[in-house]
Design a protein around this nucleic acid. Structure first.
Lengths: 339, 339
DNA sequence: ATATCTTCAGCAATCGATTGCGGTGACGAT
DNA sequence: ATCGTCACCGCAATCGATTGCTGAAGATAT
């Protein structure tokens, strides 16, 4: 019959008892005789009965489900985060509904609606690059659904957050480049509507200041992909503004720059040192290996999920929102060696 | 009140009408007057009403949800597949519940149970390395739930499958190396209990035969990781069995070998050509860039999901199980150029 | 003015699981 | 013989949304 799933009613009909009796027998309610309990449990075993969580969820108004919205899973960092999320959720008996925004605002808003319709108990989100209107996320909060941002947060929305100390780490990476004797350090930045973009830029500027280097606008540009970085390098070369170091806002950007430099006959790290961000596995396989910042994605995922579950279990009790920082580490490799 | 979600009853109470009227008004049932419809819709708009999909699912006995079980998401290939799955599912109005087996049998079995309890309409699975008992997957089929395997299939279970033509692709890669004038082609293989390990090895052997090259046992070894590959290269060098080409069972293996060769002063592809498998993004960033086999993970994901949805929508109507092969392409880059 | 029809809403059941309350039998006590 | 006391189980409501059927008005026809 129907989808092949055994229900409590099916078993009740077979045994000639009421569904309520079956339910109570299964959960060991004292009102049910040992004999009845035994019979019911045997049948449940035999028919491989599995309670319908959806129905239970309706009854108890909880879904035991959390939602995750991620820009693009095919990034090592994000897949690490997801892995951490799944791990904690699984061990807490929660299931994870997974959505990908593909860096699109519309998709992200659609994902939020879908998750709400599914009555997830909480949402973990890293906002897309395109998102600048945050009403959809505000709606989540207004519906009383816990929200935790990780890595990319939305400004002005009351929620827990798990972020990297982007500014500090960016500063550290840039200072490292300066420490190698580099004077003309370029920054290939992420879009400035993203907080992480602004933070990393700030860290870069701070490092310049601390190293006593001037900020040269010709060495600052928004480029956050492999291809864009290559274009920018070509432009810099053409315009005669070759820097002696490049700090990329992420690894693919840094690698794109590095490849463009090398194929233009410019040695790395000989003439130009390069550093990236969010230590991907790429960093170890490039030639030269890439100096980068390890963001500890898995830990960000576990921590974010813990914060979410904590807030879910706090029920109505409100408490101040937390911002947790997962400290990133600078991993120094060959691309940033002294000339 | 409760979780903040507006229900049809809430609106009915406010408007002083019956829940059924609200329901019909929202779906434009002709029995409802234009005036009532307008009033209801306005309130729904104002209160941001969203139908409870869980309740609808219970009513209609469909969850609009599919489940995915994947060994480890932090592999570029699998994250590509997931991306493809999510894409098709989203466009078809399905949500994806995501589980990670972490290559563990227990975890995989637990995931299956959880997905069944959630009444997913179908399951996509790539079995873990550890899995040798497939009863949990057989249970899925016996419950009448569609199942589709991708990449790693379970033998003897009636289900649709989407796989790579591993043997053919491995043969192609090896023949390519032979075509570059290489005579002593080594193979760094995956464990032979994995089907893909055996298939790729077979492809390698077949290519040797077709190229008229003898099989040299000293050039065959089981090594399927970055580190193992490096050790093997050092051993080959030490033993004086340096090949003039290496075909790795996956990209990290190939890259490990390449790095070890280069750091030993052996030029790639000058003296030794290298090719990998399952084109990761690594392949483009190494130096030299790595020749590899593109498995088209995204397409495997979309195809597998399409097969699953097709079977879900076929309702009770049975039709023969399909095995679809996503043909892998050899992507020739610099690591395998002629000497 | 009565009969018939049309229009529009509500009642109640349904999906699967759970639970407060009420009811039925057996048994002993008075 | 009647009442009280358990042990045990069923009825019905609930969660949110949907739908067949029923029913109450008003409109139209005769």
């Amino acid at each position: 019959m129907h989808s092949g799933h055994v229900t409590i009613k099916d078993m009740a009909r077979i045994l000639g008892v009421a569904p309520s009796t079956v339910s109570r027998a299964l959960q060991g309610h004292p009102d049910i005789s040992a004999e009845t309990r035994r019979v019911v449990r045997e049948l449940a075993e035999k028919m491989k009965y599995q309670p319908n969580i959806v129905a239970q969820g309706l009854k108890f108004r909880r879904s035991n489900t959390i939602g995750v919205i991620i820009p693009e899973i095919v990034h090592y960092f994000f897949s690490q985060v997801i892995s951490g999320i799944e791990d904690v959720a699984y061990n807490a008996g929660y299931t994870v509904i997974f959505c990908q925004s593909n860096e699109k605002y519309d998709r992200e808003a659609g994902n939020v609606k879908a998750l709400m319709a599914h009555r997830v108990e909480g949402i973990l989100v890293s906002v897309s690059k395109e998102t600048s209107d945050f009403q959809h996320l505000r709606d989540v909060r207004e519906n009383g659904i816990p929200l935790v941002f990780f890595d990319r947060v939305a400004p002005g929305i009351p929620a827990d957050q798990v972020v990297t100390n982007d500014r500090e780490a960016a500063c550290m990476a840039t200072l490292h480049l300066a420490g190698q004797g580099r004077k003309k350090i370029a920054h290939f930045a992420a879009p400035q509507n993203l907080l992480i973009g602004r933070e990393r830029r700030q860290g870069y500027l701070e490092a310049l200041a601390r190293a006593g280097l001037p900020f040269d606008p010709t060495l600052y540009t928004e480029a956050d992909s492999f291809e864009k970085a290559q274009r920018e390098v070509h432009r810099l070369i053409a315009e005669g503004h070759l820097p002696d170091a490049i700090f990329g806002t992420n690894d693919l950007t840094a690698i794109g720059a590095m490849k463009a430099l090398i194929s233009a006959g410019i040695s790395v790290p000989g003439r130009v040192a390069v550093a990236g961000f969010s230590d991907s596995r790429f960093a170890e396989v490039t030639e030269p290996t890439l100096t980068s910042v390890d963001q500890h994605g898995f830990e960000m995922g576990t921590l974010a999920t813990q914060l979410l579950l904590k807030r879910i279990h706090a029920e109505e009790k409100e408490y101040p929102f937390e911002t947790r920082i997962v400290k990133a580490d600078l991993v120094i490799r060959n691309s940033s060696m002294a000339p």
